[in-house]
Amino acid sequence: MTTSSIAEPIGVQRNESHMRLWAVVAIAAVVPALLMMGPVVAGQLATQMGMNASQIGLLFMSENGAMSLATLPALYWLSRINLKQASLAFGTVFIAANLLSIWAATSDVLIGLRILSGVAGGSLTVICIATAGTFAKPDRAYGFWVLGQLSLGAIGLTLLPRLFEVYGLGAFFMTLSILMALCLPLMRFLPERIQGKASKSASKASLWSLKPICGLAAVLFFYISLNGTWTFMGTLAGEVGINPQVSGDILAIATLFGIGGALIAAFMGGRRSYKIPLIIGYLVMVFSVLALLAEPDVLRYSLAAFAFKFTWTFVLPFILASLARLDSNGQIMNLSNLVIGGGLAIGPMLAGQIIETLSGVETFLYVAAALTITSLLLMLSLQKTKQEG
């Protein structure tokens, strides 16, 4: 069930399920705003607060790291506390940390407040990612999850430079506070406890049994490949002589393809088997990575970037939904939050090391393609057979 009571009339159940989806999507869109709007926020941190590149990098790493590490205490509390009350508490802390960030006088104070915001936001993410897995159509829920993040990120990248000109960096933190305050009334639609939709065999399986480990490894390899490739798309363009303004415009347009990929995944939701969308999405992603080899011209670079961004957001909901099918209490989806954060951190670091050591992007592209194929094979091992239904 996706509602809190099986005794309610079907109309009420459906309405509550829809409101629960709105709550998950809205909260999950607001929490990672720093990551989604990073380029413009980083520029404002430099110009307004005089932060250097290492300080800005530390701030981003601190908040995103805190979001990921919030997974660890959640292993204890996720199945023990009232999640409606917990989400209200975490939401309130998130709002307070962002309001205080407006008046942070030094980079050290601001970084401390971003860690606090990250812990609260990461805890909310744990609740939302586990809740999304309980829907009758988790692939659709995760599709709207990704769509919400991309859409808010695109709006922020467009509007924040104008707001910064008038109100400064405080406009970003105030906006986050207001958006989370608007989410607070929706939190009453979240469940008090996570009741997964795992099969009987999955519910008896340990969190550390083979299938969950394979699924989490698949997510890790996917994100290492994804973020390593995406981080150095601009570097690759420079190596092959594509003008930085042109490559920037191409990557901005690619975001629209990403929104399209998430939208299509959302409306394809409810499938009994994820094999076909997983195979199509992964293979197109591999081909888009390999298309960046051998000094692509502007046309091939553009097509590769568009295909990469589209398939990244198209296949991700089916990856998360595959994990959700194994989950009986939200703990697998909770750990996926930590794994995603690890992949986002490892990808650029691994890519940077390979590029610096071997003097070029192409070697990493081969590594990224291999990681993507490995992730696909691991994901396919999780899919139901005909005998399993």
Rank of each mutant, 00 (worst) to 15 (best):
S336C: 15
T229Q: 05
L72G: 05
L116V: 15
L186K: 05
V219Q: 01
L59A: 06
W77T: 12
I155L: 03
L377F: 10
Y76P: 07
F135N: 14
L236R: 12
G91R: 01
A294C: 13
P32W: 04
L380P: 06
L283H: 00
T106V: 14
A154C: 09
L220R: 08
Q13H: 09
P138T: 01
F318D: 11
N98T: 12
A218N: 04
S273H: 14
A70F: 04
R271G: 07
S151N: 10
Q387C: 07
K137M: 10
K137W: 06
M349P: 08
L376G: 08
P244K: 09
L110T: 02
A104V: 05
V298A: 05
A291W: 00
A305Q: 03
A351G: 06
I127T: 12
F308W: 05
Q331V: 01
T363K: 07
G11Y: 10
G347T: 11
T311L: 08
V31Q: 02
A218T: 02
I6D: 09
F172P: 00
G57L: 01
D139Q: 07
T231G: 05
Q353I: 15
T158M: 11
S17H: 08
I259A: 03
L378E: 01
I81F: 06
W312Y: 11
A304H: 01
T313Q: 15
I355T: 13
S225R: 09
W103T: 13
K200W: 13
N329E: 11
